Lab assay of single mutants.
Amino acid sequence: TYVQALFDFDPQEDGELGFRRGDFIHVMDNSDPNWWKGACHGQTGMFPRNYVTPVN
Rank of each mutant, 00 (worst) to 15 (best):
residue 7 F to E: 15
residue 13 E to P: 04
residue 15 G to F: 10
residue 33 P to M: 14
residue 41 H to M: 09
residue 8 D to N: 12
residue 13 E to N: 09
residue 46 M to T: 13
residue 18 G to N: 10
residue 20 R to S: 11
residue 8 D to T: 06
residue 15 G to M: 06
residue 1 T to K: 15
residue 4 Q to R: 09
residue 55 V to P: 07
residue 47 F to H: 00
residue 14 D to N: 06
residue 55 V to D: 07
residue 31 S to K: 07
residue 44 T to C: 07
residue 10 D to C: 08
residue 6 L to I: 13
residue 16 E to D: 11
residue 52 V to P: 01
residue 34 N to C: 08
residue 30 N to H: 09
residue 24 F to T: 15
residue 56 N to D: 15
residue 6 L to F: 03
residue 11 P to I: 04
residue 3 V to E: 02
residue 11 P to G: 14
residue 50 N to D: 07
residue 25 I to T: 02
residue 4 Q to F: 05
residue 8 D to A: 04
residue 3 V to M: 08
residue 45 G to D: 02
residue 24 F to M: 13
residue 49 R to L: 05
residue 5 A to R: 01
residue 19 F to T: 01
residue 48 P to W: 04
residue 11 P to A: 12
residue 18 G to I: 08
residue 22 G to L: 04
residue 3 V to W: 12
residue 52 V to C: 12
residue 23 D to R: 01
residue 36 W to V: 09
residue 41 H to G: 11
residue 10 D to F: 08
residue 7 F to L: 14
residue 9 F to V: 06
residue 46 M to S: 10
residue 36 W to D: 01
residue 17 L to I: 09
residue 41 H to D: 12
residue 29 D to V: 03
residue 38 G to T: 00
residue 49 R to D: 00
residue 16 E to W: 11
residue 49 R to K: 09
residue 38 G to H: 02
residue 15 G to H: 12
residue 18 G to W: 13
residue 40 C to P: 01
residue 7 F to A: 11
residue 30 N to C: 13
residue 14 D to E: 13
residue 22 G to H: 04
residue 54 P to D: 13
residue 13 E to G: 13
residue 31 S to E: 10
residue 37 K to E: 14
residue 38 G to Q: 00
residue 26 H to C: 13
residue 12 Q to H: 08
residue 33 P to Y: 13
residue 36 W to Q: 03
residue 33 P to F: 15
residue 31 S to W: 04
residue 20 R to L: 10
residue 32 D to L: 09
residue 40 C to L: 12
residue 26 H to R: 13
residue 5 A to D: 02
residue 33 P to A: 11
residue 48 P to H: 07
residue 44 T to W: 04
residue 2 Y to S: 07
residue 41 H to P: 02
residue 4 Q to Y: 06
residue 10 D to G: 05
residue 53 T to K: 15
residue 8 D to H: 05
residue 25 I to A: 00
residue 29 D to L: 02
residue 6 L to T: 05
residue 30 N to F: 09
residue 49 R to T: 09
residue 14 D to H: 09
residue 16 E to K: 15
residue 35 W to V: 12
residue 9 F to M: 07
